[in-house]
Design a protein around this nucleic acid. Sequence first.
DNA 1: CGCGTCACTCATGAA
DNA 2: GAGTGACGCG
Length: 726
Amino acid sequence: MDLLSNLNPVQRQAVEHPGGPVLIVAGAGSGKTRVLTRRIAYLLEKGTSPMEIFAVTFTNKAAQEMKNRVSTLSHQDLFWVGTFHSICVKILRRHAAEIGYQNAFGIYDDQDQKAVIKDCLKELKLDSKDFKPVNVMNHISRAKDSLIGCEEFAKEAAGYHEEIIAKIYTMYEKKLKLYHAFDFGDLIMKTVYLFEENPKTLEAYQEKFRHILVDEYQDTNQAQYKLVKLLSEKHKNIYVVGDPDQSIYRWRGADIKNILNFEDDFEGTTVINMEQNYRSTQTILKASNHVISNNSQRKPKNLWTEREEGDKIAYYLSDDEQGEGQYVVESINHAIENEGKSLNDIVVFYRVHAQSRVLENALRRGKIPYKIIGGISFYSRKEIKDVMAYMKLTLSPQDDINLKRVINVPARGIGQSSIARLEERAMQQGLSLHDAILDAMDDPMVQARLKKNLSVFMQVVQTLTEKASDLTVTQLLQEVLRTSGYVEMLEAQDDTESEERLENVKELISATEEFEEEESEPTLANFLEQMTLKSHIDSYQDQDEQLTLMTLHSAKGLEFPYVFIVGFEEELFPHSNSSFESDELEEERRLCYVGMTRAEQRLFLSGAQMRRLFGERTPKSPSRFLAEIPTEYVEFNSASHYTPTWNPEDDDMLYNQDHGNTAVEVVQVPVSVGFEEGEQVTHPEFGVGQIQEVSGEGASANYSVLFVRYSEPKLLSAKYARLTKY
DNA sequence: CGCGTCACTCATGAA
DNA sequence: GAGTGACGCG
């Protein structure tokens, strides 16, 4: 196949670039995946070895797809392809010993991290009310994202609160080292640290990686930036693709400056702008462009398309969240029955997972099969974490977090007070809990009954460890289930919850079997590592006839013919936690932009007038992002206006509740009508401004308003603008 | 020690 | 509405 076929001139330039730093600013739907894979295939064709290519993707799924595509194009297999995390694991597995860890380290997820932090709080006798584990964890993780180790953190700590966090951070690091574990942040930070400490190792990798490619560069953090900066110093072939308008992981340490300053950071950068969108209709693209143009911190760009104008964006204002669910169900049925769509063509996005429940109920009632991406992942379920903890212990018995997790699961008569005493012993002697238990078992002062209970547990661990090396992962798992008595425990409980847990454990067996079939090196360490680094989206498959539900954050990189974004309301989207600071609000807007630009043909937005929150019915107003879409692109409907395209007879009580006594229109959105050009107005959010231009009439009018606080005029719709005379 | 109950707190997003 | 900690009983 010709590697340059079906590419536009800009894409072709990107694929054929001779080398050196390249920044590709790739707008939504501009074909960046195609460019990236062709680029790699092109490099291979020009004689680069697959081992010399270091390519970072945002998810493992994307990495797999890239591998497959490259393999199809070039019949060569890439090796250094994956997320930052998975690539760094590969490096650390070979070199961790050089920085004082063992190469067989464990990986802690956020649950494990929290458990360690809780232990630190206990040991430091701190009140977990003043120092919430989640909060401390975020501090530590953000520090690691910025390559700030605990010593430096301690040095720069200002004020009591930070000083305490520094103490916790220091103890946390000590514990992780004792447990031979890395957390997510470590995977990147410690790799950078390795390179900084060992110039020889760095040089070897610098030499090796002739070409470095990074996708979704707008969502890299400082540690990741430093990593690619270091690695690219020799050959200077750093090729990054991203879109500042789609940076949505600031809260996870992503630094949008990485992409904004790329040209300055890497001398001789070629910037390539890919602005032709091949995905969405004119209407969807223009509407999205309007929304994102409200961000002040942005490089303007002009994303355009040759595609047809397409349908207007549908906006539906329901009475409450139930009505919204109903609307989604009906619209989906309509799309399937009358517009030739299948469930695979449709996706529903929401801002927070909590919104899924109401939708699920509506979908179940409507007999629409669905799957949810994200939420509580399979691998963070208690039973799965428990069983995996046993397997992890066979690799590293010193891992106290995993040891404590299962020492009394199933119950072995080793309760909290006993564990506390053992921990005390461990701390005093500077031992891991595992070694402290061994020590206690030789101590005549320790109760015989406790010793017996402890030896039962230690026997389990020992038996498993001995067998582990001779068994496949599946066999070990089955051995765990038998020896630990876990299955027995679940069977004895005999209620719906334990039945479900049993099912999940069985599903884990399928997972190990699948892993063994697919993997060339199906070791236990590989399995555990893959499961920990797996992302929600990685397990997403679109084969089945099912509707997909996910958060907007998971939406990145995907596209669907029909897209629903529900909960288009103030406080929910933009989320209330993000509406104070303008940086955060702009990130919410980018999230909105990401969501909207996923749509190829039709976009459905919806919100409710009343929503049950914290168990209370709360009045809601439409999202400000709605007001940022010119009304000419939108078809408005509300519960009272809405003309059902289905037969009301077929429906259940929900419908009647919604429509039973609503002869009167109840749209409670403040309407700002009758303003004229030049008039002074105020807006609750934007402050004082002047009307520059009026288009349309009455409630469907649009005002272009120049607010004092903003340099660009804002386009507001009369229906939602909440304008008053100044 | 283990288990159940009850009150209490606290609300995003995720590799 | 969920997850957690305190408390008290068997």
